[in-house]
Simulated scan of single mutants.
Amino acid sequence: MTEATQRVSDNGVSIWLDDLSRTRIESGNLQELIANDNVVGVTTNPSIFQKALHQVGPYDAQLKELGKVDVETAIRELTTTDVRNATDIFRPVAEASDYVNGRVSIEVDPRLAHETEATEKQAVELWEKVNRPNAMIKIPATLEGLPAITATLAKGISVNVTLIFSLERYEQVIDAFIEGIAQAAANGHPLEHIASVASFFVSRVDTAVDKKLEELGTDEAKALEGKAAVANARLAYELFQKKFAEDPRWADLAAKGAKVQRPLWASTGTKNPAYSDTKYVDELVAPDVVNTMPEKTLNALADHGNGAASIEGTFEDAHDVMNKLEALGIDFKAVTDKLEADGVAAFIKSWDTVLADVQAGIDRVNG
């Protein structure tokens, strides 16, 4: 283990890799990251599968075996096979952590982001298709996704809630989670191994807010560049602590074995070269969180990251940053609403590319 990744882990952060491909699985690279870099889970999304499935070669044997199936079936078979194989690699991690870690996420079709019932249906289908207790089904935190999150958890299915940008939506996600776990208990499901994370996106917030601050061009605006994303995430952690400590429903569920829904820092690759390439790791270290990192960020952390605890004691400063942004006329709700819409649109665009690439693969291997 590297010193920095071990320090991050010792300070309560679960390191998950934000990437998956058949090449990574079959080459042994995933196992190496578990052994050498404290990686204890994996997340996927449509953009990650776009990159993986665009490769010519690694998936040809399975496409040949599937034959001339429809492209939707082929994609489901390819992606769930990768996730199933990855969960098997992480099974010892899952068992050692009582299924807190060792999780591998697969996302519902992004085209269903605003369709509650269709999301619920596909979440069950993916869970049954992967058929591993350490899988997680990713559901976006759209307004239509919230009831789907509750319904999926109520069936005893572990859920990774994705595309969270605002504190307001995050609080709704926590409420949807607690209600889902309450329903799972009422439905007779054991609560101990139902896991959930709330994926709070980070770097994209700075990209959007910094652009507005640059347009203002004042000294006050310039002083706030690169501060919005970390402040927003730190306030999410404050909310996490408050909600689970004070909600009377949660105390009862915890007594029955339920585990908290941990905040997960997503979009942690630094997009602005002026900022540290470990910024969205080093500034968000605290107990009971997950940080899902692209490999480039993981390597940077291992090479020169800090990893010291960095959230506790920062809430007042974080509120101050948000108040100053408001005073400058930055409509943060408008920013986060647009980020959510753009995030869904970007995943749909990636999925459209996946459809085209897999169809091309079907045609290629079947003559």
Rank of each mutant, 00 (worst) to 15 (best):
R132N: 08
E128Q: 15
I75D: 00
E72L: 06
P133T: 03
T73E: 11
N131P: 04
S97V: 07
V71M: 05
K68F: 01
A123S: 15
A94K: 00
D70G: 15
I75Q: 07
T81K: 11
K64I: 01
T81D: 11
F90K: 04
T79S: 12
R76D: 00
D88A: 14
S97I: 10
T73Y: 09
T87H: 05
P133D: 13
P92T: 00
N134Q: 03
Q122W: 02
P110M: 09
F90C: 04
K64C: 00
L78F: 05
T73G: 06
P133N: 10
A86M: 08
I75K: 15
T87F: 05
P92C: 00
A113M: 13
N131G: 09
D70V: 14
V83L: 06
Y99G: 04
I106Y: 13
W127R: 00
R132T: 05
I89P: 09
G67V: 09
T87L: 08
R76V: 05
L66R: 03
A123C: 07
V130I: 14
D109P: 03
P92E: 01
R111E: 15
E115C: 03
I89G: 05
G102I: 12
K121P: 02
V100L: 14
V69T: 13
E128N: 14
N131Q: 06
N134T: 02
T80I: 03
E128I: 01
S97P: 00
T73K: 15
L66E: 06
V83T: 08
A96W: 03
P133I: 02
N101Q: 11
A135F: 01
P92F: 02
K68V: 12
A96P: 10
E72C: 00
P110S: 11
T87D: 11
L78Q: 09
E120A: 04
V104F: 01
A94D: 10
D70I: 14
A96V: 03
E107S: 04
I106W: 12
G67Y: 06
V100S: 09
V124P: 04
A113E: 13
I75W: 10
I75Y: 09
G102C: 13
D82F: 10
S97R: 12
D82P: 14
I89L: 15
R84H: 12
V71Y: 09
G102Q: 12
T79N: 06
L112M: 13
V83G: 07
A94I: 03
V83H: 03
K68A: 13
N134P: 05
A86Q: 08
R103T: 02
E107M: 07
E115A: 12
E115Q: 15
A86W: 00
K68Y: 01
K64H: 08
A123H: 03
A118W: 07
I89M: 07
D82M: 14
A123W: 03
E128L: 10
V83S: 05
R76N: 10
A118P: 01
V93W: 03
S97Y: 05
L78M: 10
P92N: 00
G67R: 12
L112K: 15
S105D: 04
T81W: 07
F90H: 05
P110Y: 08
V93M: 07
S97K: 11
R84P: 01
V124T: 11
S105N: 09
E120D: 06
A123G: 15
A94C: 06
V124D: 08
E65H: 14
Q122P: 01
I106Q: 12
E77C: 00
I75P: 12
